[in-house]
Design a protein around this nucleic acid. Sequence first.
DNA 1: GCGACAG
DNA 2: ATCTTGTCGC
Length: 329
Amino acid sequence: MAAPGAGAPPEETLSLWKREQARLKARVVDWDTEAWQRNPDFSGLQRVGGVDVSFVKGDSVNACASLVVLSYPELKVVYEECRMVNLKAPYVSGFLAFREVPFLAEAVQRLQEKEPSLMPQVLLVDGNGVLHQRGFGVACHLGILTDLPCVGVAKKLLQVDGLEKSDQHKEKVRCLRAAGATFPLVGDSGTILGMALKSHDRSINPLYVSVGHKISLETAVHLTHACCRFRIPEPVRQADIRSREYIRRNQGLPGAPALGQERTLKAQWQEVCPPGGSAEPTDKGRPPEHLGPGPGADPDAPTQAPRDSEAETGPVGVGPREGPCAICE
DNA sequence: GCGACAG
DNA sequence: ATCTTGTCGC
């Protein structure tokens, strides 16, 4: 029940994962540690990274992990890496990092080895930071593993610690006027876990920003907003666009699984975690082999129209009622 | 049966 | 995450 549609990890594994999260959580730094973070215009900030993982259609194992680095404030892609990976763990809400973070951390590691001068000064991560069941989402996890400042940027509200998509929440969302408008996400404990951010004038659904590592919530929100040309901040959006594109080009090429012949995650999970047996940690790292971006992979190719899919804008004829809001006075 | 469910 | 067309708007 923990992972609908896929093989669920044994309770024992979840227990180990929780312990690991608790151990690493102690290292999270939730304030500004970098000089550029203190400057109102972020002067000194030159490179912002984004990461994402996209999937092959009917396959929960094969995916493309991508890391991009954009110049700031121009928001032009100056580095890109896409790589096909075999996910080892199923998706379980609250444990996303155990599925994706190993490959993201490896991508950062390869960048460090190949082009250290392009190392981003901060990473925007698709998912939550401290806004999480145990206060340690994927953005925190990646931050600790890489020691880079990280920001959690989620597209949906993770309903934890009393946070819910209640009518009151929806009311607050409707009250967000111009891009940049926010409201705090306060947990039962009274702690501010993150901020809802209207990232674009024409978007209705806000982003849910939270601290990952080495950055304050205020700076995280300001930075996220500063990186938005559309609803999704450019670093994450470019990582997403490029990883999907990479998958499209890789489909049908040697190495890609034949249709209907994919290994299911459930099957793979059974290998790693036999029902009743002890699993052995086997392989470590692959040889750094490049299936480098072919000749037609210009980073700057504006093949993408200035329009985003998704709910960049609300339904035209059925917009939420404008007018006085009881909550935002 | 119903709601929850980051990606 | 993914399945998917048109449509409105700058």
